[in-house]
Amino acid sequence: MSTFKTNIIAGPLWSNDEAQKLGPRIAAAHLGKFTGQWNTIVQGQMSVIEVELNAEPTGSTEYTLNVLAGPIWSDEDAKAICPSICASYGGTWNGQWTTVVEGKMSVCSCVFKF
């Protein structure tokens, strides 16, 4: 199984002890593993943690979740947008979408395997 590493925003982290405590939880929320590395990117406001992720979603358990996607105007628009939106969270698009705030925000229905 191929893996890759990426940084995920984690809010402000004030110390290495806090990062080591919260990092595994944040990584797990993204179906990944915390590498132990982190960095402050905006002093006093925002940090990132390094997470190792599988290149392809795997596992026998599935969970479907709606993910914010900005405005989507049609089924054709959704077909062009939702696969990438879901992939950005480590999931796959199941073909469903809906508008939640007219003209401003839609969601893509993403399937996560773990």
Rank of each mutant, 00 (worst) to 15 (best):
M1E: 10
M1K: 10
S2W: 09
S2E: 14
S2M: 10
T3M: 06
T3K: 06
T3E: 14
K5M: 04
K5H: 03
T6C: 14
T6D: 15
N7S: 09
I9L: 15
G11F: 10
G11V: 05
P12H: 10
P12E: 08
L13N: 01
L13D: 01
L13E: 05
W14Q: 07
S15Q: 03
S15H: 02
S15I: 00
D17W: 08
D17Q: 14
D17V: 04
A19M: 00
Q20N: 09
L22I: 05
L22T: 09
L22M: 09
P24R: 03
R25F: 13
R25P: 01
I26Y: 04
A27E: 08
A27C: 03
A28W: 08
L31A: 12
L31D: 13
K33P: 00
G36R: 00
G36D: 05
G36C: 06
Q37N: 15
W38M: 02
W38H: 03
T40G: 07
I41G: 02
I41N: 10
I41W: 11
I41H: 06
Q43Y: 12
Q45Y: 14
Q45L: 14
Q45G: 12
Q45D: 13
S47P: 00
S47F: 03
V48D: 10
V48R: 09
V48N: 14
V48H: 10
E50F: 09
V51S: 04
V51T: 08
E52T: 06
E52L: 05
L53W: 02
N54D: 15
A55C: 09
E56N: 03
T58I: 07
T58V: 02
S60L: 10
S60A: 11
S60V: 05
S60H: 11
T61P: 03
T61D: 09
T61W: 08
T61K: 15
E62H: 08
Y63D: 09
T64W: 14
T64K: 15
L65N: 14
N66F: 13
N66V: 08
V67F: 05
A69Y: 03
D75I: 11
E76P: 04
D77V: 00
D77F: 09
A78P: 00
K79Y: 11
A80M: 12
A80W: 07
I81V: 13
I81R: 11
I81K: 14
P83S: 10
S84M: 10
S84W: 06
I85W: 04
I85F: 01
C86V: 00
C86Q: 02
A87S: 10
A87G: 07
A87C: 01
Y89R: 09
Y89Q: 11
G90H: 03
G90D: 08
G91K: 06
T92C: 11
W93Q: 08
W93D: 12
W93G: 13
N94W: 04
G95V: 02
Q96A: 12
W97P: 00
W97I: 00
W97E: 00
T99H: 00
T99C: 05
V100Q: 01
V100I: 15
E102A: 15
G103W: 00
K104I: 07
M105K: 03
S106M: 05
S106Y: 02
S106N: 06
S106V: 08
V107G: 04
C108F: 07
C108Y: 01
S109N: 12
F112W: 13
F112N: 03
F112D: 01
K113W: 05
K113N: 10
F114W: 13
